[in-house]
Amino acid sequence: MTAYRDSVAGPPDEYVEAEIHRLLTEDPAVAEQGITVVRTERALVLHGEVESAHRREEILRRVADRFPDVSITSDIGVVRAQAPTEIEQLP
């Protein structure tokens, strides 16, 4: 992880956002490219959908381990996998 000159203030939020975004893809325990990191006034919010509840929990655990001082809010869902209710006809 990058060291920052102003250690008291910590890294700017934009760099944290970038590092979390890369962590979500490059950490083999996560490997998700479909999670969006959004900065709000109070926290970083993770948006997106994953294939299992286990993966959602793992994302939050890995991000909290790596960035223990960053306030993270999750809005990650698990994609539904039911049969379709409609057929699209394409002439």
């Binding site: 994609v79 539904r80 996998a81 039911q82 049969a83 379709p84 209710t85 409609e86 057929i87 699209e88 006809q89 394409l90 002439p91």
Partner: peptide
Amino acid sequence: KQAYSIFHLGDHLDQGEVS
């Protein structure tokens, strides 16, 4: 947001119809 989508391709089908 479902297990798969289904498409029917054919000459006689109505344009844009969703069943």
